[in-house]
Design a protein around this nucleic acid. Sequence first.
DNA 1: TAGTTGTAATCGAGTTGTCC
DNA 2: GGACAACTCGATTACAACTA
Length: 284
Amino acid sequence: MTVKPHKIAQHYIDAGQDIQFYYTGTEQCLPGHSWGPGIKDHYKILYIHSGQGIYRTPRETHRLSAGQAFLLTPGELSFYQADDNDPWNYSWVAFNGSQAELYLRQAGFTREHPVISCSKDAEIRACLNRLFDANQQPYSNPLRISSALYAFLSILLEPDIQEPALPQKQQIHNDYVRQGICYIQRHYTQPITIENMASALGLHRKYIAQLFKASTGLPPQQYLTRYRMEKACELLSQTALSIKEIAFSVGYADQLLFSRMFKKTTGYSPTDYRMTKTAGSESL
DNA sequence: TAGTTGTAATCGAGTTGTCC
DNA sequence: GGACAACTCGATTACAACTA
């Protein structure tokens, strides 16, 4: 299937930089529109503004929606496809360079976890527009393009501004803990383990558990569970998604397990919580 | 009535946290 | 870093409520 992209800007910048810009673009896909299976010789990040679709790597298939970004890694077979009923609208940036892998890892992207969540849609749109515009100039300014590309990556590197409302809001002193929190915020929709997180940070799980407890008052696993339940509360009160869909959306493959953990954390079953919230909003 | 959705209980395996 | 208790997770089964 061929779809004419809404806009694509392409300009190869090679100034011996640690990051080299290749191209960028944005597209409202038609239902079922797909790419691949195929490989690329550079990195490509696709950020979903709206809609849904799937992204398949040799290891697994990811069901994705708005607010998520996925990474195509050089040399790795990839396939992605827009949903038949709710096709996605996404933007992409392709690049390469000696430091690309380092920056991507800091943002939470690895081959094992090529998907992250990022709720800064407006910032990303603005940033990609600047990148596109800079590249459209008759005399492209490499520094301006690089600046926009770095800005884009920096947005992904930062944790979401929305701090989780955890019981003990202690100031986070440790960079490792901050990176760990960032990792959780990026990957809570996936079946991650503390072992995964520790290895992504290059630390032993016991050490990161100690740092977490000291800084947040909670061990990493509990922090992850609390964060997932907060997101589930948002989805229950703000959307009409089924319990099963919400369970899947916050990283639980099993809705039964999700219901159990939700009740343990909040004291309510998911259905009761939604009813309570709905009744509360109606009475306002 | 059959199918769907959600909750609850149980069990075994794997993971995590803590102590030493 | 090992050992071990506690916890989490996934699978299974049963049941209730609701709907077409």
